[in-house]
Design a protein around this nucleic acid. Structure first.
Length: 267
DNA sequence: AGAATTACCTGAGCGC
DNA sequence: TGCGCTCAGGTAATTC
């Protein structure tokens, strides 16, 4: 379940290893992901050099000069960087083989991921065009959150998980951020004060940044690139003791998503 | 327009 | 052992 921090750690690692690498060959085994993987990948990518890797929300964007390779890991997607060849497993849908011997392998059992190829600017890509501000930039703060939420009736958790509001906040970090901000996930977002919005924006940033630095810290010289679990205060702990007041954590469903909070510590 | 619901997919876990 | 069920969940598409 790669969330924004895992995607960022992956981006960092991949950029370090792949910058300047030239694509030799593309092997597409399964094109039927959430969106069809363009077959032209196999003909257009070879010969191109990775000039940089960017991230927008949870989308990874490989700058290949003549165009961009877009990868979203969905729920279960995983990128591995191998040296030399190795036999592909059942869910290894795509290999990008580089001239220097590196092999970028996309694995995704649930096929919720996306692989796409496009030219032009990333802002124009239909999947990226309507994404809200990046949570780690100055564009995202309490004032923005306050203004954006006026008159809206959705629950605050669903609001911050809306990618048009803010990029890349998934279920885990939405739960964690609301706990740390002391705000109930089912609060109508329009009822939030400026102060609460500021607190929430700050903890969203904090929780993501902490996870990124922890992910980078345990990044070792290993072939696997992706997920670094951390200790969560509420996520996955429904019914267990709140770390703040020791009372039992509540678990509800919000928009079909598992939502855990403390009715004593969160108002 | 905003809110709610559905679709996509497969492995894990559970009750029987 | 194995069948059928539910759940996990990002996000686009669809419906209300």
């Amino acid at each position: 379940m790669p969330e924004l921090p895992e995607v960022e750690v992956t981006r960092c690692r991949l950029e370090r290893e792949l910058l300047g690498a030239r694509v030799k060959q593309v092997v597409l085994r399964v094109a039927k992901l959430r969106l069809p993987v363009p077959e032209e990948l196999a003909t257009v990518l070879p010969g191109l050099v990775v000039r940089g890797i960017e991230r927008r929300g949870k989308y990874l964007l490989f700058d290949c000069g003549a165009g961009w390779l877009l990868i979203h890991l969905g729920m279960t997607g995983f990128l591995r960087l191998l040296h030399g060849s190795s036999p592909p497993g059942k869910h290894d849908h795509l290999d990008v083989i580089f001239s220097d011997g590196q092999l970028l392998r996309f694995y995704d059992p649930r096929k919720f991921g996306i692989v796409d190829w496009f030219s032009g600017s990333p802002q124009q890509h239909p999947l990226l065009a309507d994404i809200g501000p990046e949570p780690l930039t100055g564009e995202f703060d309490g004032n923005y959150l306050f203004e954006a939420s006026r008159g809206r009736k959705v629950a605050v958790k669903q609001f911050i998980m809306n990618s048009a509001v803010v990029a890349g906040v998934g279920n885990i970090y939405a739960n964690e951020a609301l706990f740390r901000a002391g705000i109930r996930p089912d609060r109508t977002v329009g009822s939030m004060t400026v102060k609460e919005c500021s607190r929430l924006a700050a903890v969203i940033r904090k929780v993501l940044e902490t996870s990124i630095s922890e992910g980078n810290a345990c990044m070792v010289a290993e072939e696997t690139v992706a997920y670094y679990p951390q200790e969560f205060k509420v996520y996955g702990r429904g019914g267990k003791a709140c770390v703040g007041c020791a009372g039992p954590l509540d678990e509800i469903r919000l928009g079909g998503r598992s939502t855990v909070f403390c009715s004593t510590c969160q108002k």
